[in-house]
Computed example of a mutant assay.
Amino acid sequence: MNDVIKTIIDHRSIRSFKDEPLSDKQIEAIVSSAQMASTSSYIQAYTIIGIKKKETKATLAKLAGNQSYVEKNGHFFVFCADLHRHKVSGKMENVDVEKSLQTTEKLLVSVVDASLAAQNATLAAESMGLGICYIGGIRNEIEEVSTLLKLPSHVIPLFGLAVGVPSSDTEQKPRLPMENVYHEEIYQENEKLFIEQLHEYNKTISSYYEQRTNGKRKDRWTQQMASMLETPKRTQMKEFFQKIGFIKD
């Protein structure tokens, strides 16, 4: 196993960091790595906002649901889907690009581009011995986050990435069985087999939580998912996206 694969396989979310800011060289390496991710048609439809100020981190932590590791880390990155520069590009070339920018396809392109860049950033950070934690909670109050970061139209704050020196190691959560996520040639729709595999995975996850919490939790994965999905969350997204120039078509 080479070092790259080992770094990927060893991934785990870190939620406790030492009070050590990232150096400018570390930040530059992480962002440069993010920029080398694949991008659809060279569109590079994302922007990364780096947060150093403690007061800004503290505000973001509150907006993200009072997650302490949003405030206390070595550096906080906010990954944004960004078609604003493409609107400016159209203006520079005297071409109307607005209808194209408002398509669902361009929303997907910008989200995928930002996600690929973020995963490159994660791999770069972890290869330097740093820990990371993705923060989807910044979408809880997406308008307030956009105002705080002074984001223009056609820019969506998608998720945060807390990066820093881990203050302690954490256990790795077991992933779904490969058979559940990797199918060859066609989608292998065998619900009976699927359920059998998920039952086995439930046992693994329940045991993981039981050991981790000294018996206080025994959650099943399917139980977690059903509970989480029972009530729709962040239902303001479509309205917000349309307000700032996305998904008209």
Score class of each variant (00 low, 15 high):
L108Q: 11
T47F: 02
S40L: 06
L116V: 12
Q102A: 11
K62L: 09
T39A: 14
I51A: 05
G50E: 13
A29K: 06
T56D: 06
A125D: 06
E126A: 01
N94I: 00
K87S: 03
E93G: 01
D24H: 13
K91Y: 00
A121C: 09
S41H: 09
V4R: 00
H11I: 08
S41Y: 07
C133E: 05
G50N: 09
G74A: 11
T7A: 11
H84A: 14
E105M: 04
K6P: 01
F76N: 11
A118D: 00
R12M: 08
G50A: 11
S23L: 06
S110P: 11
T56H: 08
V78I: 15
V4N: 03
D82L: 09
L107C: 07
V88G: 01
Y46K: 07
F79I: 14
T39F: 02
N73W: 15
C80I: 09
K72Y: 12
E71W: 01
A64F: 02
K91C: 00
M128S: 07
A58L: 13
R12L: 06
T7P: 08
D10S: 15
I48Y: 02
S13Y: 05
D96L: 00
H75Y: 15
E28G: 02
I27V: 14
N94T: 02
T7K: 06
L60C: 04
I8E: 04
Q102N: 10
E98P: 00
A64Y: 04
A118R: 05
N94D: 15
K52R: 15
L123P: 01
L130G: 07
I14T: 15
L107P: 09
K54N: 08
V109S: 07
E71Q: 14
K72R: 12
S33M: 04
R15I: 02
A34F: 01
E105Q: 07
A117S: 09
K87P: 01
K57P: 11
S32H: 05
Q67P: 09
G90F: 00
V31F: 08
Q102F: 00
S13F: 05
Y69L: 07
C80V: 10
K54I: 08
D3S: 13
D19H: 15
T103G: 04
K91Q: 05
V97M: 04
I30Q: 03
K25A: 15
V70F: 12
A29C: 04
A37D: 09
L130W: 11
L123T: 12
H75E: 14
Q44D: 10
A61Y: 02
S100W: 00
I51D: 08
L63M: 08
M128C: 06
E126N: 11
